[in-house]
Nucleic acid binder design. Structure first.
Lengths: 183, 183, 183, 183
DNA sequence: AATGAATGAGTTTTCATTCAT
DNA sequence: TATGAATGAAAACTCATTCAT
């Protein structure tokens, strides 16, 4: 429901109807409509964050780690498009949620750590602010998801793979050490 | 109000209180709460789009054009941070608005055109899907704005300038022709 | 539960939880939440009323009969404080119950009869409206119970006995024949 | 509405209908149904308490002061029977209210002070616990009100006056010094 | 005897919008 | 212009009760 109509536009009765139960039953399992949204978030975001952390702790090159992170986030679209829709539309940008849920920034933090270590090892140019670079990287991924969610970008299997390649290629090239003198 | 609490969470009374008038007066100037949002959008987004179009029609290199586009979008933050918040959060992501207002995608389209012409002239690598590349570029900018909006990135004068440089540098380097063989 | 939270505020689930069973089981033993309250009342009030009737039929002086009635009501507190709470708060004051259960006024009626016979025998002053006097007597007792229920009066063993003595002493003195000219 | 149907049985719509307005308007003036009840209480109980305090600070005899206190409480019935109904039924006995509103015990405290000073001056017998005596006095008054509220006692103008006289007479006689040896 | 998922009527509450003043 | 009382549709939420297991 949230994916299709948005949080505020979805009524509790709609959610229950979709689930094939009476609306009252929803309050057996959730204390409020709000908690439904938060549960969706926690159950899915948690998995994402864990997988990203696993990547962060591998011994791969920064470039490969970034590739994996991008893949984890972007491929979620193929498996759980509705979840992505909700995360992108309802949570990632909602002021209320942002304040309540500190986990939201974890992926960006992980990307920052990867970049920092890439800079230390000389793989990535050292003159970039890693926090800013992480935001740019994450934003590129996120906007692709948004394009898919809003139907502005094609999102077939091949498109998803192409997007993954493009994002990683463009940004890791932009981050690469040899370019430090470009400007 | 929209910037601080989000569209749905802001009550008409809140908006009027912020403006220092009674809520009834709001209906003298706007026909509905929705029209308030649409007005904010039209009055501000239009200016942005025009300035971006002007850049697009210059004879600068693709790189310089992208630099200017990024500057236009990011510097708005310094002058109208709340407007930026609203545009980023409420409008750029809302499906309802998307349908009504085709202007929303104009900046991404402009970026795509710039990239396409850069590819034709040989300045940018030709193997990238320009639509996808434009989305990545716009997403990078947008996420930086979000970072500022949410206070996760510093947004002083120097920070804004640094961000501008980083975004453009990283992405134009990533787009540059000489890197086509990087992967 | 009724004693602690009041009838309307107590949910069936609360009652069942207190009893250590699932709420569904309650409907094996009672046909409704209402019947639970009525059962509490019937099982306890009936005993009280019977004991008061027994006193009324003795040959004791009015004063001794009143003493016994007060004792019966007040000492219940020691043995079943929660039952007393429910009787005092939920039933004695609820208009719905009043209508259904005529037993409610029986103690006051018994007190009135005792007073009437005391007036006939010359033991009690004859210029008091016996109905009114009975209400005052019962009210004195009832408020002491309320004070205990709400923790505003100490309710140890000695306190209960002292209260019994005070209520009876004050009121029988006030009722006594020799005082008829007091005002 | 509360007087006629009780707090829990009265719907917000009933209250609004009684007032001749739409139910939404109620939330213009009160934040919740609960606040309506609390407002009724505060606006009326406060007046009562103030008047009782005024009596307490006069130089009258304890007997006269008690007479005035009884008159203040009982005569409220004549002027504002519905208010009395609500105070008696919904507030004075509700566990939730009792805990929230400390003012509820003020009248009993005032009566206790009057009794204490009467004992010091020798006007009243000294062997009574003043807290207990105050509760008995207040209970007598309160139960008369309850009798009127529930229609079990006649409450015409003459009846109210008679009740006033009876309560005061019986109880002040019971409290009087000369009776200390009665038991 | 016991459970607790499931129901849905009934209530409170919210809030954009209207409109007399 | 400006106010804020008034409206009422729409929504969230509660909870006694049922019933398959």
């Amino acid at each position: 429901m949230f994916a299709r109509k948005g949080y505020h536009t979805s009524r509790v009765g709609d959610i229950a109807e979709e689930a094939g139960v009476a609306h009252g039953l929803l309050y057996h399992y959730f204390s409020s409509k709000d908690e439904v949204l938060e549960t969706i978030f926690r159950e899915n975001w948690g998995v994402l964050v864990e997988r990203i952390h696993a990547v962060e702790q591998s011994n791969d090159s920064a470039r490969d780690q970034l590739r994996h992170v991008a893949a984890i986030i972007l491929r979620t679209w193929r498996h759980q498009p509705d979840v992505v829709r909700v995360l992108v539309r309802e949570i990632a940008r909602s002021p209320e949620m942002q304040e309540r849920i500190s986990d939201l920034v974890k992926p960006i933090e992980a990307i920052r750590h990867i970049i920092e270590r890439g800079q230390e090892s000389g793989e990535l140019r050292a003159d970039l602010d890693p926090a800013l670079a992480a935001v740019v990287f994450y934003g590129g991924i996120d906007e692709v998801l948004t394009g898919w969610v809003l139907g502005q970008l094609p999102s077939g299997v091949a498109d998803v793979e192409a997007a993954e390649r493009t994002v990683v290629e463009v940004l890791t090239a932009g981050f690469a050490a040899s370019l430090a003198a470009a400007d």
